[in-house]
Design a protein around this nucleic acid. Structure first.
Lengths: 236, 236
DNA sequence: ACCTGAACACCGTTCAAGT
DNA sequence: ACCTGAACACCGTTCAAGT
């Protein structure tokens, strides 16, 4: 069968061919903006990069939140889900560290990840991989289901807090000053701990916290399920 | 000495006397707006409530972030720092639960608390109280300093995620649907855990996570301080 | 000197009007 | 039918001009 004739593309003023719009192209362009310099990826800036107006984006996404969720899931495709060295504990730490690094490069998305949980295939694959590692460690599946939430929340919140901060920058200068100025009379324990509150570098503290969560999980079974069923209960 | 004569206040159109502006009045008004219905406390809405224009607020606060930090610290004055029943573990859980409840009533502030750490007296008092309880539990102070961050981050992030959600509302409907639809072939562990991922009610899950963090802390000493000093080091 | 109206440079979202 | 220019209803912040 002869291919149907297509209209020849109208050459718009000889500009370098602009990509046709689609969910994929929009998300890819948004991630490129987000990863490089751009302070905040707004619908208007994104539309500008795509050489159109903001209204056009509403053909593909219901609102800004849905776009953010799509960006987030696309980003999660870069997480290393199956490291090949170490026991289950070490591999769990590596997967979570990879997740954190990926978010780190996209400050805006890291913040969004705390509020709008993604539901795309890459997020599901991440949860599945974490559950698998916890099962390998012998954790009952009901416990593992809750622990995954804890691990991801720790990683996400840490990325969101620190993302986009200049590496050399003094973070929380006001808090540091306040702690340094805290009178030992009013705040005895704070004054005693002042030297340690801000110690350690980010990755070391994060890795320690993952191991702490794993140890805690092994030592802390879920409460008896008596109250559990509720409306949240089973799927279906 | 005779008191200096004051100008009589000009009665502005017989309106009920409007409070003179000050940091305290502004913060109190903002918290009232935040706690009651008001979707989002913006500088313009706040200025409206104070019967002035947004520019006036800049006389008292450098920017919106500084106002938020002041609101947050004022709010933390309501946290019950010293419960009178239970051992140190139970009291620690009670303080953290109180902190979470206070944030819950102010969705916007809960979100802000994740990014701009407050540095006011009420925040310092909270950290001091948590350090005291951890010391009572026998945790070395260097460990306790890091653990406090973990406990507060868990509480803050949970409040931020859930704050403002209608109690009856189905949260994360997209994620729940995606999990329910997940094929056991592609996501075997996710499919197996589907029934448990969303189980339990909020407070029970939160309380369990606090105990998990405490158990983890007791079982997970900080890494050797070899790398610690850095630029973050001691407070002199 | 202290305060603020009005302007500036942005937002997300909607919808009537184009092709 | 699909797309979008222009308008709408907002933002935080600045600054010249008032008292």
């Amino acid at each position: 069968v002869a291919p149907r004739a297509r209209r020849a593309p109208i050459s718009r003023r000889d500009r370098p061919a602009k990509d046709a719009l689609s969910r994929e192209v929009i998300v890819a362009t948004a991630l490129a903006l987000s990863g490089e310099g751009t302070e905040r990826v707004t619908l208007r800036r994104l539309a500008g990069a795509l050489e159109t107006g903001p209204a056009s984006l509403y053909v593909y996404f219901r609102d800004a939140e849905e776009l953010q969720a799509a960006m987030l899931d696309a980003l999660l495709g870069a997480v290393r889900l199956r490291p090949d060295t170490g026991d289950w504990r070490e591999r769990l730490g590596q997967v979570l560290a990879s997740y954190t690094e990926v978010l780190f490069a996209h400050p805006g998305l890291a913040r969004a990840a705390l509020f709008t949980r993604p539901s795309g295939p890459h997020y599901l694959a991440l949860v599945d991989a974490l559950l698998e590692l916890l099962a390998e460690g012998g954790l009952p599946i009901a416990d593992a289901a809750w622990v995954v939430d804890l691990l991801l929340q720790r990683a996400t919140a840490t990325a969101a807090e620190n993302a986009g901060a200049d590496v050399g920058a003094d973070e929380d200068p006001l808090l540091r000053q306040a702690v340094a100025d805290a009178s030992p009379g009013d705040y005895p324990h704070l004054a005693a701990a002042a030297g340690e509150l801000f110690s350690g570098d980010g990755p070391a503290r994060l890795a320690w916290s993952f191991q702490l969560l794993i140890n805690g999980a092994l030592a802390t079974p879920r409460p008896p399920a008596a109250i559990t069923p509720g409306r949240a209960g089973s799927v279906r």
